[in-house]
Design a protein around this nucleic acid. Structure first.
Lengths: 134, 134
DNA sequence: CTATCTGTAATAACTAAGATAATACAGTTA
DNA sequence: TAACTGTATTATCTTAGTTATTACAGATAG
């Protein structure tokens, strides 16, 4: 369920954070769900437990999960209100880039292609079968 | 003219590469122009000359500049390639934002709405009398 | 010719981030 | 009690990036 790319330049713990946030956004992980234990996930990914803990800790400090010593780590219920500011910010950024690309004669169709690629990528990485991309 | 962000996570030499490519794309740096010498630029940026050379060397191997030992490093004519490269840069940025927005559950349909808004805006600003898009 | 600029090269050392390894403590649960 | 959980600490390793230093050779102006 949770996969990482060892060749990527982005740190493992950051990949984990993003992947889990993604699974939450896709509601694959739902409020109350228990995350794999630090040691179990470390075993599955052939990665050090400390690296997993680092990701969980960050997720907890951001409010995405909560951890109960002795029990486990669980998914929190994140309100969308927190994200609205961020969305607005990203929208501004996006419009700037759209404009630039428009001036470089990149078609709308092509942009939509890129969007689809992102969708497929996310689906793949959070899915089951493995595939190389670079 | 050439600036870097010491706090950035992206390596200095990569920032330099991107910055110079950008200046070329914007035609601030034009074919034949001489780049600051390795040592001079290193001095200005308070950075090791080796770091500058690493960037120049990469730029040369990609064909963006050419270097003459004893004379200096100069800008090549890469107009076609440069546009493609700038598009690639923007694409990378765009994909990052797409991914983030995906994490925030912003739908593809909504993104396309934003794109359309940009298109209409540009048509107006460029005084385009052509109204038959889409 | 000399001085000083230019690019180029090589090697050693330092830094910081990320990751690993090992161990330990405490709460939970079957 | 045994086997899970999260948490914590400390030391070590690895790697990319960067620095520091020194050196060589071509170009050019005085």
């Amino acid at each position: 369920m949770i996969q990482i790319d060892m060749k990527s330049r982005t740190p493992i713990y950051e990949q984990l954070i993003n992947r889990i946030k993604l699974l939450m956004a896709q509601e694959v992980l739902q409020p109350g769900d228990q995350l794999p234990s630090v040691r179990v996930l470390a075993g599955e990914l052939t990665v050090n437990p400390n690296t997993i803990q680092k990701a969980y800790r960050a997720l907890e400090s951001e409010g995405y999960v909560y951890s109960l010593p002795g029990k486990g780590s669980f998914v929190n219920d994140m309100k969308e209100t927190i994200n609205n500011d961020k969305i607005a910010q990203l929208k501004t950024e996006l419009i700037r880039i759209f404009t630039e690309l428009s001036l470089l004669n990149v078609s709308k169709a092509e942009l939509i292609e890129w969007m689809d690629a992102v969708e497929n990528l996310n689906a793949k990485e959070s899915g089951d079968t493995n595939e190389n991309h670079n």
